[in-house]
Computed example of a mutant assay.
Amino acid sequence: MNSVVTRTWSSVLFDLDGTILDSAPGIIDALTETFQHLGLPVPSREDFMAYIGPPLLASLQERAGLSEAKAREALAIYRNDFRRDGAFDSAIFPGVVGLLDSLRDAGVPLAIATSKPETQARPILDHFGLTEYFTVIAGASENDARTSKAHVVGHALSELGKAGADTSQAVLIGDRIYDVEGAAAHNVPTIIVEWGYGSPTEATGAIATVYSADRLRELLLGN
C-alpha cells in the first residue's frame, strides 16, 4: 500500500454534499424552483447534478449563462427556498457515522470544508446529529467574501490551527475536482469518494479514490 496514502494524518477535512450527505434531492428541488421562478429553462435532474459541489454563484453564471447580477438574484431565491424546504432533504451516506466515530476515538481533529454557506451547513449538521464530530465547520460566507473552495479550505485550516489542531499533515475528503483543486491551493492532498457526485475524471490529482467508508477508514487510520 502506498505510504503517501497511509501516512499518519494530523487532521482530516471533509466536504459535505456528496461526501457525508446525499443532499442532491433537496438541492435539485430548490434549483428547479429557482429556475421556474425566474422563467428560465429548467435543466434535467441529471444536468443539475453538475451544480452540486462548486460555488453555486459561479455555476449559475458558467452553466446557466446568467449575468453576475442575475446569478446573484437567483442565488438569493435558491437560498431562501433551500432553507425553507430542501435543507434537511438529505441522507447520511452508509458507513460515514462509523467512520467519524473511529476518527474521533483516534483523536484526529476533524473539520467540515463546504462550499455551502456556514449558516446552512451548521443547522443541517445539527439536524443529523453530526456537529459534535467536528472541531471546525467552515463554509462559504453569506456575503460572498469567501466563495471558492480554496478560500473555504484555507479558512478551515486557519480555524483548526486556532483550536490547537496540527494541520501539518492534513487531508481533504471530497467528491469533486473542486475539492482537489481547492485543497491543492494549500498543499493539502485529497482522497476522492466514489459514492459522491463527481465523474471518474474528477479524481485526477487526488492521491486515492475509495469505494466505501471502510476503505476510507483504512487509508486514514491504517486499520
Rank of each mutant, 00 (worst) to 15 (best):
A30F: 06
A150C: 12
A165W: 15
I191H: 02
D144S: 11
L160P: 02
D179R: 00
E194Q: 10
T19V: 14
R104H: 11
Q169G: 08
I20Q: 04
P189G: 02
I112H: 07
N187W: 06
E218C: 00
R84G: 04
F35G: 05
L99T: 07
V12K: 05
T167Y: 01
G53N: 04
R146I: 13
G107I: 14
L172M: 13
D29R: 08
Y78R: 10
S59W: 03
R63E: 01
A76N: 08
Q169L: 07
P54H: 03
A64K: 08
L103G: 01
I92C: 04
K149E: 10
F48Q: 14
G107V: 12
I20V: 15
S148V: 00
F35N: 09
V96Q: 00
L103T: 07
V97H: 12
D15Q: 07
R79P: 06
W9C: 09
H127W: 10
T119E: 15
L31A: 08
D29W: 02
V152G: 02
H127M: 11
H127E: 09
E118K: 07
I52V: 10
F48T: 05
R83F: 09
E202S: 04
N143V: 03
S11G: 05
S3H: 15
E33R: 15
A106Y: 11
F128E: 02
D144N: 12
H151Q: 14
F88L: 15
F93C: 04
R215T: 12
A183E: 03
A150Q: 12
P25N: 03
T190I: 07
L220Q: 07
G198H: 06
E202T: 00
R7V: 06
T6L: 13
L38Q: 05
F82G: 14
L221A: 09
G164N: 03
A106G: 09
E46P: 06
D214M: 00
T119Y: 11
I124N: 02
I207L: 12
V4D: 11
V97W: 10
Y178V: 03
E132R: 02
S102Q: 11
A71R: 05
R84F: 14
T119M: 08
G98V: 05
G164R: 01
G98W: 11
G154L: 04
R63C: 01
R7Q: 13
L220C: 05
E68I: 12
K116C: 06
A71F: 14
D17R: 10
S67N: 02
